[in-house]
Computed example of a mutant assay.
Amino acid sequence: MIVTDTPTLYLSIYIIAFLIGLPNAVLAFCCCIRKIHSKPLPIDIIMLNLVISDLIFLTFLPVKMKEAADNMVWNMPDILCQLNLFLFFLPIYGSCHFLVVISTERYVCVAFPVKYKNPRRITYTILICIAIWMFTIASAVLTYMAAYGGSNNVTNYTVHQLCYTNFTPEQLQNVLKIRLAFVAVFFCMPLFICCFCYINTIRILLKLPLIKRCRKLRAIGMAFGTLLVFAICFAPYNASHIVGYITQENPKWRMYTLTFTTLNACFDAIIFYCISYEMRLAFKVCKKGFIQFYVRIKSFFYLNKLYRTHM
């Protein structure tokens, strides 16, 4: 049973994630493409894949907005509900592993600088990213088969007008088992690897006196951004999987945790900013333009007020 008494909250979070995440993702995508065309590095390839994952997620987000605006009643074509398992959940699974690869790459760069300069590192990075996409797609397909594979009524939401919520007892058993397995594969293992890599990366950088302070702060910023993603976006969602498996039912608060996963696209902007010099430069230009715009608007209202005072 899904919680349907606060669709406004869901819609608000979706809108916030869309308005903050989309501009940052588009900007990061442009920066990645420009950097890859000039002088690509492994981190640029990984960042591009993470950006693509976010763009897929954000592209489908208006569909979730429509669902929330309709009080969580599915009034859209059946095919969109089936795509919901892929275009909404697939980027969530993919982001976890791309964050792992980013943390690992940063650790290898600092701890093993000689091996990091291997000329084949770009090829290895591309192969790793392809493997992550294939594994993530396979996981999404497995979830779909667990939910609907054993039923003749594939789109079982049409009866209750809900999407990916109402299951037969057999389907629910399969889904709960898959979700529990995903807790280990897409949360516990990635979180452990990220913590190990960032802790050791920061520890090594702090011991190197010749490393600039800004680089150390960027490493801390990446660790902080990754921790926010896991703590706010993924931890509650995966906790609902564990509780669901223990109670053998969908927790009533699961929809809240699923909604907060959309903020992943917002927190990824912190990681993009710490990785890409082009992103930092673009932020400075946007900041300068915003300040100039604010000063002009403020001056306009001040002069207008001054003019009216002397009339």
Results as ranks from 00 to 15, higher is better:
residue 191 L to I: 13
residue 290 F to C: 13
residue 169 P to G: 09
residue 167 F to W: 11
residue 74 W to A: 03
residue 106 R to Y: 12
residue 187 F to H: 10
residue 277 Y to G: 12
residue 188 C to M: 12
residue 113 P to Q: 12
residue 252 K to E: 04
residue 242 I to W: 03
residue 200 N to S: 10
residue 53 S to V: 12
residue 3 V to T: 06
residue 29 F to H: 09
residue 216 K to W: 08
residue 234 F to R: 01
residue 266 C to A: 10
residue 280 R to M: 10
residue 33 I to K: 07
residue 249 E to D: 07
residue 185 V to W: 07
residue 53 S to F: 03
residue 37 H to G: 12
residue 166 N to A: 07
residue 58 L to Q: 02
residue 239 A to F: 08
residue 252 K to N: 11
residue 278 E to R: 14
residue 183 V to N: 13
residue 159 V to W: 13
residue 174 N to D: 04
residue 22 L to R: 01
residue 37 H to Y: 08
residue 287 K to Y: 08
residue 289 G to I: 09
residue 301 F to N: 13
residue 279 M to A: 08
residue 300 F to Y: 13
residue 14 Y to M: 03
residue 65 M to H: 02
residue 274 C to D: 07
residue 220 I to E: 01
residue 220 I to Y: 05
residue 114 V to L: 01
residue 48 L to Y: 06
residue 286 C to L: 12
residue 123 T to R: 12
residue 106 R to V: 15
residue 281 L to E: 13
residue 69 A to T: 14
residue 243 V to S: 02
residue 3 V to K: 03
residue 245 Y to S: 08
residue 10 Y to Q: 06
residue 307 Y to D: 10
residue 291 I to C: 08
residue 282 A to V: 15
residue 224 F to I: 11
residue 131 A to K: 02
residue 103 S to C: 13
residue 30 C to P: 00
residue 177 K to V: 14
residue 110 V to C: 10
residue 298 K to E: 05
residue 47 M to A: 10
residue 85 L to S: 12
residue 48 L to I: 10
residue 289 G to Y: 08
residue 284 K to G: 05
residue 219 A to V: 14
residue 98 F to R: 01
residue 38 S to W: 11
residue 23 P to T: 14
residue 132 I to H: 00
residue 87 L to C: 03
residue 149 G to A: 12
residue 98 F to L: 14
residue 1 M to D: 01
residue 44 D to L: 10
residue 23 P to G: 07
residue 114 V to T: 14
residue 311 M to V: 15
residue 240 S to L: 01
residue 288 K to C: 04
residue 246 I to W: 05
residue 42 P to T: 15
residue 208 L to G: 06
residue 91 P to W: 09
residue 162 L to Q: 12
residue 303 L to S: 05
residue 99 L to C: 10
residue 77 P to W: 06
residue 41 L to V: 15
residue 86 F to C: 03
residue 284 K to T: 13
residue 40 P to N: 05
residue 62 P to W: 07
residue 274 C to V: 14
residue 90 L to K: 00
residue 193 I to S: 02
residue 236 P to M: 06
residue 160 H to C: 12
residue 7 P to T: 09
residue 293 F to S: 13
residue 288 K to L: 06
residue 262 T to K: 04
residue 62 P to T: 11
residue 207 K to Q: 10
residue 277 Y to P: 02
residue 12 S to E: 00
residue 218 R to W: 10
residue 291 I to D: 08
residue 153 N to M: 04
residue 139 S to W: 06
residue 199 I to C: 06
residue 242 I to F: 05
residue 173 Q to S: 11
residue 241 H to Q: 06
residue 158 T to R: 12
residue 86 F to G: 02
residue 76 M to Y: 08
residue 55 L to R: 08
residue 23 P to V: 14
residue 268 D to N: 06
residue 190 P to F: 07
residue 131 A to D: 04
residue 86 F to L: 08
residue 251 P to K: 03
residue 182 F to H: 08
residue 15 I to A: 04
residue 299 S to K: 15
